[in-house]
Structures are given as C-alpha cells and as structure tokens.
Amino acid sequence: MNKHTKIAIFIAPFLAIIGFAITDMYEEQQAAEKRIFTMSVQNQCDIKAKNCILESDEFLLSISHQRGETLINSTYPLDTATLFLVDQDNNATSFSLGMTDNPYYWRAKTNLGALIEKPGSDQKLRIIANIKGGSYISEFTSTTQ
C-alpha cells in the first residue's frame, strides 16, 4: 500500500462523516419547515358505523364516535388535533381533542352523535392534525348508512 492509498483511506471516513452531517442538517431544516398535507377519505365515511378513515400517503387517521365522545386514532403520533363540525350555513364549531394514553389516540366530547344518528344524515367535518413539521388537514362528510 503506497502513501496515496494510505492518505485516501485515512481521509475517506472524514468525508463520509461530513457527508452524513450535511445530510442531517438538510433533513433537520426540511423537517422544521411547516408543510400542509391534504387527507382524503378512503372509500366512504360513515362515522356511526366506525368506518371513516382519512389518508395521506402512509398516514392514516380513523374517526369514530361513541358514548358522546369523538375519537381519532392515527398511524403517526400527533402533537395536537382539532375537529370542526360544520353546519349547513358553513359555520364551524371547533373541538380541541385531548390525548388519550398516548399520542396515537385523541378524543373530545362533542355533539356529533346526535348529528349522525339518523340514517341518511350527512355531516360535514374538518380536521387538523399537527405533527412536527406538518399539518394534516381534511374537509369531509360523514354519511350515515
């Protein structure tokens, strides 16, 4: 092994470490930027039937309602979650959801149960789920079968 090979083998790990450091800085900067992702409804949303899943790539968010509480369950841990019930005049009532046990489960007492009780009833909802570096938003309608 001559001197040039020795020098190259000595220098290469430092360059690799610098490369990883630059990558890490870039990724951290990207993660810090606020981004908004729109979620869409998988198939059809029927909250009463516990069949309402929103998706955005690999992020899934399930919404259900039982015993006067609206629950959401997500595939990624959330920082905050806010649900809006939108009436026919497009006025929205907001509900800040509270964490249940872990950041994958959130719930709040809402009057959604009464609004989706009757078969055929439509209820427009909006949701904002915040995760570090991004907000997942959606406007959708729950139709009771």
Binding site: N2, K3, H4, T5, A8, I9, A12, L15, A16, G19
Partner: peptide, 28 residues
C-alpha cells in the same frame, strides 16, 4: 451507493496519483 462510490474513489485517487508520480518521476 454513496459508500460504494467513496470506496471506489479511494482506489481511483490512488491510481491517478500513482500515474501522476510516474509522470513527474517521483514514484515510490
């Protein structure tokens, strides 16, 4: 891929420098 390229660069650099040494008559 980047790691594989780094390793390849080590040998490429060594090869080119040996060529350079020969060109200037300073090889080991």
């Amino acid at each position: 891929g980047s790691i594989v390229t780094f390793v390849a660069l080590v040998f490429w650099y060594s090869y080119k420098m040996n060529q350079l040494d020969k060109k200037y008559g300073v090889e080991e």
